[in-house]
Write a protein that binds this DNA or RNA. Sequence first.
DNA 1: GCAGTAGTTTGACCTGAATCAATGACGTGT
DNA 2: ACACGTCATTGATTCAGGTCAAACTACTGC
Lengths: 241, 241
Amino acid sequence: MEAPAPEDELNFCQACTVRNRAICADLETYEIALLNKIGRRRRLEAGESLMWEGDDAVYVANVVSGVLKLSTQTSDGREQILGLAYPSDFLGRPFGNTSPYNAEALCETVVCVFRRTDFERFALDHSRLEHKLLERTLSELDRTRRWMLLLGRMNAEERLAALLLEIGARSVAAGCGNSADADIDRFELPMSRQQIADILGLTIETVSRQLTKMREDGIIEIRGRRKVTICKRGVLEKLAA
Amino acid sequence: MEAPAPEDELNFCQACTVRNRAICADLETYEIALLNKIGRRRRLEAGESLMWEGDDAVYVANVVSGVLKLSTQTSDGREQILGLAYPSDFLGRPFGNTSPYNAEALCETVVCVFRRTDFERFALDHSRLEHKLLERTLSELDRTRRWMLLLGRMNAEERLAALLLEIGARSVAAGCGNSADADIDRFELPMSRQQIADILGLTIETVSRQLTKMREDGIIEIRGRRKVTICKRGVLEKLAA
DNA sequence: GCAGTAGTTTGACCTGAATCAATGACGTGT
DNA sequence: ACACGTCATTGATTCAGGTCAAACTACTGC
């Protein structure tokens, strides 16, 4: 296939749905054009991986649409999900040689990938980008540390309450803020029960039991396997506090 | 007291024991002089706090000597330690309004503090500093994520093994690399049993029992309450893997 | 619409770590 | 050198969540 004309390449970034929220948000038009030259889009199927823990960190990426899970595991195979990456989130390990986690798409996902070395060179020359990346990394560190409190000190019920609230909030934040499904109390779980268990440091049976209990208590409604409605937000918030 | 002469101010930073390892490492002499003007040293007693979770983020700091714990708690008082800060580590939340954690000295500690706003202004003008801060934040995020695997998926024995190895490694890395006590297998725990429990998401009794078990198995030796020697490093590494 | 299947729920039981309760020991100050 | 207070250890018991096993149910492809 022919390379697109320069105008198209520019439009490629400028028409991007995460253009104003990702780390490229503060860049000037000419910088966007440069960044556009070193990046390319990639589509991932559900279950497809973008990088593996321990492998050479070849790529970094921005999430354009979809959701990915970042995970790691013990030597004997117990998995722990480290976080979820939603649209506009940044993925990968700049200024490091190996990937610190696996990144796997949970549904059909589009990412904007850069060779790590290209990206690093660009970042070093464009401190606005580096600054955005720093702000994002600091926020991610805060979020990760809050998750440590959950894993270290909360019981199963509290963990599930925290996750449901977080997914509701992030599903909306990740959307484009325009559509009718931007309801913080009504969303679709982007992952299976097993993956919920791997996020919360629980087993699938415990997750299932707690979900059933919440349903029986009228705190949530579940339709199908993944459609959730929060009925008593206050109760969840109290549990997760 | 008189302000020190400019030469002394300069020397203050240049003679700093963490000068070559902290985020100021890559700065030019003139930049160091500028940074020196906005920072000041502060000594903390064991148990004294530098910042509280939820408070306005007024200060950021570099650790010069000693150790601090970063912690958070649930609304009903269960505590989780989020990490330890050793010499040359950076503390605080630049580009954020509130402190995401409590920071409390575990022993007599010296920090180099900056008003956050002063520091941010300096960082924005000196991208070398911002780059160092980014690298450090990315490393800290990696470390924190590894800890999530521990909290989510490891049992008490494995958690303790991981902590002992980490403390050994960081005690040495934090030293100046010159002294005789730079032995990775022989170090002093900088915290009480309760604090170990709060780091590992366990109770004090479980920590004590596991430590006793490791002593009985000849994996470690403990003299007094806090002096630890690792006798069978291989066993610990296997447990923590 | 049906069958097949992966994913989920539910039940029975077990276990590791928490909790409750003494007892013991380190290190501090006198 | 002693006594006190804090911190740590040890023991007995409980319980949340894990494990094992058996249904069940929502999607898939035909």
